[in-house]
Amino acid sequence: MYEIVMPQLSDSMDEGKLISWKVKEGQKVDVGDVIAEVESDKAIMEVQSFKSGVVAEINAKEGDVVPVGKVIARIQTSESKNEKVVKTPGTTVVEKPVAKQAEPKPKAPVAKHHSPQETINISPKARARAAQYGVDMQSVLQKTAKDALHVKDVEAYLREHYFTPKALQLLDRYGLDLAGFTLNHKINEAEVQEFIDKNETPLPQPLSQMQKAIIANVTASAQKPVYRLYEHIDAKLFVEHDAYSITAWLIKIFAKVMMQHEAFRSRLQNDALVISPNASIAVAVADKKNLYMPVVKDANKCSIAEISAQLQSFKTKLKANSFTAADMQGSSFGISNLGMLGVESFDAMINKMTRVSQR
């Protein structure tokens, strides 16, 4: 059985979001077929199958956030055609054919009962919450079939007992607490919506993997010391060569300077300075929600026309939301340019190990 796991698409990625499945259980796949799309902390990537076979099972739903390395699908290959996939709640087992053996006679299940006189192990918080809402602990115990009760068991009982399924969906969507409602009747969706409207309750928007990565990166960047030097340059040559943008010319100029001064191509790694052989420069681009730093790789080897073409491709990928993890890797210097918006001076965040110049 060939297992497909959540891939690690970048060094900083520890979980990924399953965006969409391109296959269904029982569908035949070949080597190289795209089976899913996954959102990493940098971009949306395609997941391919490296073996041919039949999709035996899919272990994650679209929208699930899955840790790196966890199995998201299994493919039954020709080598595993005699294997059988057995699913039990919370478990997946691959059974291989073995010699038939006499099966022991199963024992009759023993039902467990709790008498009213039995002492039930109840946490103090659970007991307080049950008393607050007048909940019979025996009812909760019978519902959960547990030997010990915690506050989450009481709350689960209250949710199911006093709210309709659609009302619960609204509760979860808005992150509402049970304390805002009088629990003496079955509460429906309309009543929860009325509560939301009356209290002008804001709707939480879950963060994408990209947004989480940006927040983590900006938070880390804010801790780094920044030394500011300002200088004026004669921009006449930019005007005379306006067939290409100022950003393209800046990348060309900085790439040349970086090759003359290796410190601009170096980074600290353990107890050594690692010096890149070429000048690869990241450039900040953004849409309404996300900030990206795609890299013009080996810019010192590129003509101004080639650099301009790469910047144009970044704009295309930005609109199509099609940046890949590879687009973001390999820089040792970065440029953030807001001059086209009339900004004369600003302080840019340093992107991880990237040095940033600003116009």
Rank of each mutant, 00 (worst) to 15 (best):
E3H: 11
S12N: 00
K24V: 04
G26V: 13
Q27V: 07
Q27D: 14
I35Y: 09
D41E: 15
D41T: 15
K42F: 07
E46C: 00
F50A: 04
V55H: 11
E57H: 13
E57K: 15
D64H: 07
P67H: 12
G69N: 04
G69F: 05
K70R: 06
V71F: 02
I72N: 10
E95A: 14
E95T: 13
E95V: 15
P97N: 05
P97F: 03
A99I: 09
K100D: 13
Q101D: 11
A102N: 11
K105L: 06
V110R: 00
A111K: 00
H113V: 07
H113M: 06
P116W: 05
Q117C: 01
N121C: 01
I122C: 08
K125P: 03
A128F: 05
A128T: 04
A130W: 01
G134W: 03
V135P: 00
M137G: 00
Q138V: 02
S139P: 01
V140K: 09
Q142R: 10
Q142T: 10
K146C: 08
K146T: 06
D147W: 04
Y157R: 06
R159W: 02
E160A: 11
H161L: 04
H161M: 05
T164E: 09
G175I: 07
L176P: 05
L178H: 05
L178F: 03
G180E: 04
N184L: 03
K186P: 01
F195C: 01
K198E: 09
P202Q: 00
L203V: 02
P204C: 04
Q205R: 10
P206W: 05
P206M: 11
L207G: 06
S208F: 09
Q211H: 10
V226L: 13
R228H: 15
I233K: 12
I233S: 01
D234Y: 10
L237T: 10
V239W: 02
E240L: 15
H241R: 14
A243D: 11
Y244P: 11
S245T: 04
T247P: 07
T247K: 10
L250M: 15
K252V: 01
I253Y: 09
A255T: 02
M258N: 08
A263D: 09
F264H: 06
R267W: 12
Q269E: 15
Q269W: 13
I275G: 11
I275N: 04
S276W: 06
P277Y: 02
A279V: 13
A279M: 13
V283K: 11
V285H: 05
K288T: 15
K289M: 09
L291I: 15
L291G: 08
M293D: 07
M293G: 05
V296Q: 03
V296T: 02
A305I: 10
Q310S: 01
Q312M: 13
K319A: 14
S322M: 05
S322W: 10
F323H: 09
A326I: 14
S332N: 14
F333R: 12
I335F: 10
G339D: 08
G342N: 12
D347M: 10
D347Q: 07
A348T: 02
M349I: 14
N351W: 14
N351H: 07
V356E: 12
S357I: 15
